[in-house]
Design a protein around this nucleic acid. Structure first.
Length: 173
DNA sequence: GGAATGATAAAG
DNA sequence: TTTATCATTCCG
């Protein structure tokens, strides 16, 4: 069964995270639920988390079992349970060893990254899911380009400057 | 402003 | 083992 014939190839994600993040805006996040229902969400807000120097990126605190997938090649899913109740949805970007990822911060009709995870009924089984081969979650090109603005990222005060001020948050206008 | 709520990581 | 820390959201 090829329900995801239109999914974006992994090569899309294997670029600079600061390019992938704005490119994801306006694209369709597709969720195939266990009961067969397919729902498509238009991505309206993303944030780039760059490996290497960026202290706001989880992977920068050190390679752990949880952040390991970010060191893999782009096109994988990184899900993270925050505050014990919300699953954050991230896409791993870059080549193997780059430890970069894009946080899906908002989709159309839903504001807030925690609510995105709840709407998608995410759980830890999505950790490491490959967007190109998954039959549960993937991304499609909507064929449209969206205008967007940039802004500083949210909720990363612990990272300190200059990372707090980096305009790596992308919002569809 | 502060609580809810659970996995993770670091310390003892 | 315990404790502090969260890429958040909702209620007052």
């Amino acid at each position: 069964m090829t329900v995801n014939w239109n999914c974006i190839p992994n090569s899309f994600f294997q670029r600079e995270v600061t390019q992938v993040a704005p490119d994801l805006l306006g694209k369709l996040l597709v969720r195939h639920f266990d009961d067969g229902t397919i729902v498509k969400f238009r991505i309206t807000e993303t944030e780039a988390y760059r490996g290497g120097d960026d202290k706001a990126c989880h992977a920068n605190k050190g390679l752990t079992p949880r952040t390991r997938v970010m060191f893999e090649e782009g096109g994988l899913v990184y899900v993270y349970l925050i505050y014990g109740m919300y699953w954050m949805l991230n896409f791993v970007t870059g080549k193997a060893g780059d430890s970069s990822a894009v946080l899906i911060r908002g989709v159309e009709g839903i504001s807030g990254p925690g609510r995105v995870g709840r709407a998608l009924q995410l759980n830890k089984s999505f950790y490491g899911e490959n967007l190109a081969t998954s039959e549960r979650i993937w991304v499609e090109d909507a064929g449209t380009k969206s205008k967007y603005i940039t802004a500083p990222r949210v909720g990363i005060d612990y990272a300190g400057e200059p990372w707090i001020s980096k305009p790596w948050r992308y919002i569809v206008t």
